[in-house]
């Protein structure tokens, strides 16, 4: 099945407060708000993988860029 979901649980008072502040904001549910916030948090942390090119490759690319007049 496409788009699998799972659940998290938060204290009811917190839920109510969130519900309150998202009124008139375009967020249609606490769930859509939590998804938004969590995506933001996780994305800011995602680490860049180690660079995928070697020194030689880099040299060759710089040479090409020089030939084309970009550097």
């Amino acid at each position: 099945m496409n788009g699998e979901y799972t659940t998290v649980s938060i204290p009811k008072p917190l839920y109510e407060r969130i519900k309150n502040i998202i009124k008139d904001t375009g967020f249609t549910s606490v769930s859509s708000f939590v998804i938004y916030v969590l995506r933001e948090v996780v994305a800011s942390y995602e680490q860049e993988k180690i660079e995928v090119f070697s020194e030689e490759e880099k040299k060759a690319i710089i040479e090409k860029l020089r030939k084309l007049g970009y550097i």
């Binding site: 995928v52 090119f53 490759e57 880099k58 690319i61 710089i62 090409k64 860029l65 084309l68 970009y70 550097i71």
Partner: peptide
């Protein structure tokens, strides 16, 4: 050809600059 750059090339270029 003269105007073709791929992501790895622009990334290195931007850094060089």
């Amino acid at each position: 050809e003269r105007y073709t750059l791929w992501p790895i090339e622009t990334r290195i270029l931007f850094r060089e600059r």
